[in-house]
Amino acid sequence: MNIILALIPVSLVLLGLAVAAFFWAVDAAQYDDLDTPALAPLVDDEAATRDAGPAPR
């Protein structure tokens, strides 16, 4: 059972990292617009299509 004495602090360090990552994401405006990005995959990426040249028939 003594292993938990090491594992719990490790999990807390991971928790701290997760919270830090989340704080960064919030401050980087990742959560400010939750609507528009959902549409992005539905749209053909015209830049990529243009690079690929005319579609094969």
């Binding site: 617009d33 609507d35 528009t36 959902a38 549409l39 992005a40 749209v43």
Partner: peptide, 8 residues
């Protein structure tokens, strides 16, 4: 959302 997308 489409409006937002269009404007952007």
């Amino acid at each position: 959302s489409a409006c937002a997308w269009l404007i952007e």
